[in-house]
Nucleic acid binder design. Structure first.
Length: 656
RNA sequence: GCCGUUGUAGCUCAGUGGUAGAGCAUUCGCUUCGUAAGCGAGUGGUCGGAGGUUCGAAUCCUCUCAACGGCACCA
């Protein structure tokens, strides 16, 4: 064991606190010493320190001068340390309860932590309760976390000796420059980079083990499968409760539950991964599709419709057969001795449309759109409600253009895209640029990739969009720009993409005649705004918790009678609403108004028009609006019938 | 595809070897009522599927399908 490393030649350290105050200390000095010198209260509250942006254990000698911040439970950085420590406490608990279990890694993640274990016997949900109990004991023991530095080969030998082969493997793969640090808590210890809290008592009890799941060692499906236990951990019980409450809210807005309750769609075993859209769900679909159709027409797109089935030769030429063939649906046609493929995307078909007739440079750009229905044989475990399915419809388009048009076309697309999201109520968008995948997983030369990535970077910069680069994440034929939107409860979804492709036009021999009367290759921009209709409708349902904006609501208005005296009047109101293009129904059942209100509110009908004897006599309607999320009761108003019709007709108009 | 869990009435769920249940929904009566569940009666299930053990299986075993939670994948 050695003391933590620090620069011994330096006799004193100059530390600048967040308030600008400078302090000088003789070495060695720990974060705790600094906190104590400021005040005993702070020393007690201190969990760690942040020196020049790096978090360091409270009891470790500070390695250098610089900006120092005392991390307390209130600090933004505290949660990450607490979560990581909770993972360690869990690992100790698991090894105490289940001897022979090997530990691997246990990082902090969003909202909590996990730890991956190697054990032959699976953990059950009942085990979680026992582990949690043991964790609380360990927290109560208040074991101090202490850091040690070990020699590499000794550490490897040690961990192999005690049967922790995963830990030994991790150490073996650490870069030579890396210190091998071990953290001890009581009798238990683990290889870990740190930092940690002063002791297990600081972890607190605001944690909960959530679920057990399989996870591959190092994230690779060729490796052994480990058992992962997920937990959530917070500063205090209040935060934990708030998080658990948020999970309940998320469950309430689950599109699978709402889709059934609102009679939007269903799925069944005979058509796994495909959606049966019911009248109400398909009404949402059409409203959304019409909206996109208006936008792309205004943006100069043409719309086409191409086949589902193609001879395999087309997909062999495009490269899809080799790279994605396993995930395609293939149809053997015995009589013809041919193999057909059900299209998994629309691009090869669009190139066929482009290739009809001779194109001049004057024709470009050609923006070819299709609400294209595609099939992909997704792995069984990948399916999720209507969000990840085997049959889906993309709001797809391919822009065929000249090299010099790429930037403008990209910019125009960004504008179209962001405008659509804004009108759909999504303002918080993040942008990513996915770069070339590995050498064996991509088509085309490095020069072509350099050019494609450069073009997209330029377009993003010209659009003034901030973006993050994701190496290795691009499509096999080109880099892509991804648009991620954030929903009402803070989750992000990747929806629109723009992919720049110099490869497919080459492979499928697309060309145009240039000014020089020579043949040239067009560039292809693959783009989608919503992504898939199915998935996007799922996102909309969850974002709005089923309470869709008026223009998307499948039934916009229910006329509910109080007694049968108002039946005739209700019929008249219904006719007028229909004539005004409003999706309305009349509820003249022999039920009390309370019953009707409850039922239609649960169905998330935006407006209930209550009509009784009074309204019938005065040609009025009593309108009850659906309560917004978090609102107890919606607004109510009484309007003259004609005024009410004008109002709902205006308000239900889709964005133009 | 991998690990784990689950599958009983339209929905939510109870039922651990001995005659398939509840609430809601649906149907039929009664009730005509002013802003989130009126009252009563009735209908409804070869217990996901196939095979096996047993005198007897929703319940135990094997295989299989699907859904769910993760992992991996996502052109």
């Amino acid at each position: 064991m050695q003391p933590a490393s620090h620069d011994k030649s330096q006799k004193e350290l100059k530390l600048t606190l967040p308030d600008g105050k400078e302090l000088t200390f003789a070495t060695p000095v720990t974060g705790l010493d600094v906190a104590s010198s400021i005040g005993p209260g702070l020393a007690k509250a201190a969990l760690a320190v942040k020196l020049n942006g790096e978090i360091i254990d409270l009891n470790r000698a500070l390695p250098a001068s610089g900006a120092l911040e005392i991390v307390t439970r209130k600090s933004a950085d505290a949660l990450e340390i607490i979560r990581h420590d909770t993972a360690h406490v869990m690992a100790e608990a698991v090894q105490e309860l289940f001897p022979g279990t090997q530990v691997t890694i246990g990082p902090s993640i969003e909202n909590g932590f996990y730890y991956d274990f190697a054990r032959d016997e699976p953990f059950s949900t009942e085990d979680l309760g026992a582990i949690e109990k043991k964790m609380k004991e360990i927290v109560a023991r208040n074991e101090p976390f202490t850091r040690e530095v070990w020699k590499r080969d000794e550490a490897i030998r040690h961990f192999e000796g005690i049967g922790e082969k995963y830990k030994a493997e991790i150490i073996r793969d650490l870069p030579e420059s890396e210190e091998i640090s071990i953290y001890r808590q009581g009798k238990w210890y683990d290889l870990c980079r740190g930092p940690h809290l002063p002791s297990t008592g600081h972890v607190g009890t605001a944690f909960k083990l959530m679920k057990v799941a399989g996870a591959y060692w190092r994230g690779d499906s060729n490796n052994a499968q480990l058992q992962r236990i997920y937990g959530t951990a917070w500063r205090d019980q209040k935060e934990l409760d708030a998080h658990l409450h948020m999970l309940e809210e998320a469950e309430k807005r689950d599109h699978r539950k709402l889709g059934r309750e609102m009679d939007l769609f269903h799925m069944q075993e005979e058509s796994v991964g495909s959606v049966f859209w019911h009248d109400k769900g398909y009404t949402i679909w059409r409203a959304l599709e019409d909206f996109i159709r208006r936008r792309i027409r205004a943006a100069g797109y043409q719309e086409v419709k191409t086949p589902q089935l193609f001879d395999s030769s087309l997909f062999k030429a495009s490269g899809h057969w080799d790279i994605y063939g396993d995930n395609m649906f293939k149809v053997e046609v015995k009589a013809d001795e041919r193999t057909l493929g059900v299209k998994p995307m629309n691009c090869p078909a669009h190139v066929q449309v482009f290739n009809q007739g001779l194109k001049s440079y004057r024709d470009l750009p050609i923006r070819m759109a299709e609400f294209g229905c595609c099939h992909r044989n997704e792995p069984s475990g990948a399916m999720h409600g209507i969000m990840r399915v085997r049959q889906f419809t993309q709001d797809d388009a391919h822009i065929f253009c000249r090299d010099d048009q790429v930037e403008k076309e990209s910019l125009d697309y960004f504008k179209l895209q962001l405008g659509v999201y804004k009108d759909l109520g999504f303002e918080n968008i993040s942008v990513k640029l996915a770069l070339r995948p590995g050498a064996n997983e991509r088509l085309g030369s490095d020069e072509v990739w350099d050019r494609a990535e450069g073009d997209l970077r330029n377009a993003l910069t010209a659009a003034g969009l901030e973006f993050e680069e994701l190496p290795g994440e691009g499509a096999f034929y080109g880099p892509k720009v991804e648009f991620h939107l954030t929903d009402a409860i803070g989750r992000t979804w990747q929806c629109g993409t723009l992919q720049l492709d110099f490869n497919l036009p080459e492979r499928l021999d697309a060309s145009y005649i240039g000014e020089d009367s020579q043949r040239h290759r067009p560039v292809m921009l693959h783009r989608a705004i919503l992504g898939s209709m199915e998935r996007f409708i799922g996102i909309l349902i969850e974002h709005h918790a089923g309470k869709l904006p008026l223009w998307l609501a499948p039934v916009q208005c229910v006329i509910a009678t109080i007694t049968s005296d108002a039946d005739d009047y209700a019929q008249e109101v219904l006719e007028k609403l229909k004539a005004a293009g409003v999706r309305a129904v009349a509820d003249v059942r022999n039920e009390k108004i309370n019953y009707k209100i409850r039922e239609h509110s649960l169905q998330k009908i935006p407006e209930i028009w209550v009509v009784g004897k009074r309204e019938a006599e005065e040609a009025k309607v009593a309108i009850r609006h659906l309560a917004a999320e978090g609102e107890k009761q919606g607004a109510q108003e009484v309007l003259a019938l004609d005024a009410a019709i004008r109002k709902i007709s205006d308000e239900s108009a889709p964005p133009q």
